[in-house]
Amino acid sequence: MDEKALFVAAEVIILAVQPKILLQVLPTIRDYIQDNQVLVSVAAGVSLEEIEAGIGKHKIARAMPNTPVTIGEGMSSISVNHQFTDEDRQTVVQIFESFGRAKILPEQQIDAVIGVSGSSPAYVYLFIEALVDGAVAEGMSRKDAYEFAAQAVLGAAKMVLETGKHPAELKDAVCSPGGTTIAAVASLEKDGFRAAVMNAVQAAIQKNRE
Rank of each mutant, 00 (worst) to 15 (best):
G192N: 00
T181L: 13
V40L: 10
F84Q: 05
I55E: 06
I95E: 03
M75K: 07
I128W: 01
G56L: 07
K57S: 14
V38W: 04
S76G: 06
V197E: 03
D86E: 15
L161A: 09
A150W: 00
P121H: 07
I71N: 04
A196F: 00
L26M: 14
K190Q: 13
P177Y: 15
E11K: 14
P27Q: 02
K165T: 00
S119C: 13
S77A: 15
A102G: 03
V174C: 13
F7L: 12
D191Q: 15
D88E: 03
A112D: 02
Q83V: 11
G100D: 02
V69R: 04
E50W: 03
D191V: 01
A16Q: 01
T180V: 09
V197M: 13
T67N: 10
K165M: 11
D31V: 11
A149Q: 07
V25L: 15
D172H: 12
E97I: 07
Y146E: 08
I33T: 06
S76D: 07
Q18T: 09
M64S: 00
A112T: 06
E3H: 06
L154F: 14
D86C: 07
F193K: 05
G56Q: 08
T180C: 10
A44N: 08
N66M: 09
E169Y: 09
A145Q: 02
H58Q: 10
A16I: 02
L22D: 04
V8K: 15
G178R: 10
A195N: 03
L126T: 10
K4V: 08
S77L: 04
R89L: 11
E73V: 02
K190I: 00
I60Q: 01
V174I: 15
K57Q: 14
D88G: 09
I29N: 07
Q108E: 14
Q202D: 04
M1A: 15
D133K: 12
A16M: 02
G72A: 10
Q24I: 05
A204D: 01
E11N: 12
I114M: 14
Q83R: 15
Q83Y: 06
V132L: 06
A44C: 08
K207L: 11
P65F: 05
G192H: 08
A63L: 04
R30Q: 15
G100I: 01
M140N: 03
T28C: 07
P106N: 03
V42G: 03
A61F: 12
E162V: 07
E189V: 04
V113Q: 06
D2H: 09
N199T: 00
G118P: 04
V38E: 04
K20D: 15
N199S: 12
E129Q: 09
I128Q: 04
P19H: 10
E52H: 13
C175P: 08
